[in-house]
């Protein structure tokens, strides 16, 4: 069974006008998925934390954060073109997850 998105929840409207959404998956986010999401962007990885934390800055201006080995991650969509960027990100994510 490929990995899928099982739930998308809006977490908050940020002070600066950006939005944060939480994505939940059918399988855990492992190193392979993390690296695939980060491809083309910038990955910061903190394996020394009690549970390893990662942050990804995508070329489209999205900020993604999560804990490796958990079933979810959080995405901050910037103010400009946020709906289009959300749609594009979800398409990218679905395609990427279908391979995992």
């Amino acid at each position: 069974m490929p990995m899928t998105i099982v739930k998308i929840n809006k977490l908050e409207d940020c002070f600066d006008g950006s939005y944060i959404y939480k994505y939940e998956f059918s399988k855990i986010v492992d190193e392979r998925v993390m690296n695939a999401i980060a491809e083309g962007g910038r990955l910061q990885y903190f394996p020394m934390f009690s549970k390893p934390f990662y942050k990804i800055y995508t070329r489209e201006g999205l900020q993604i954060k999560g804990i490796l080995g958990e079933y979810d991650l959080e995405v901050t969509f910037p103010i400009t073109d946020q709906f289009e960027k959300k749609k594009n990100f979800e398409e990218f994510l679905r395609l990427l997850l279908s391979r995992h």
Partner: peptide, 12 residues
């Protein structure tokens, strides 16, 4: 917000 997130998610 990120410090709070890591404190909870990574350290409880």
């Amino acid at each position: 917000g990120e410090i709070g997130y890591v404190l909870e998610s990574s350290y409880g």
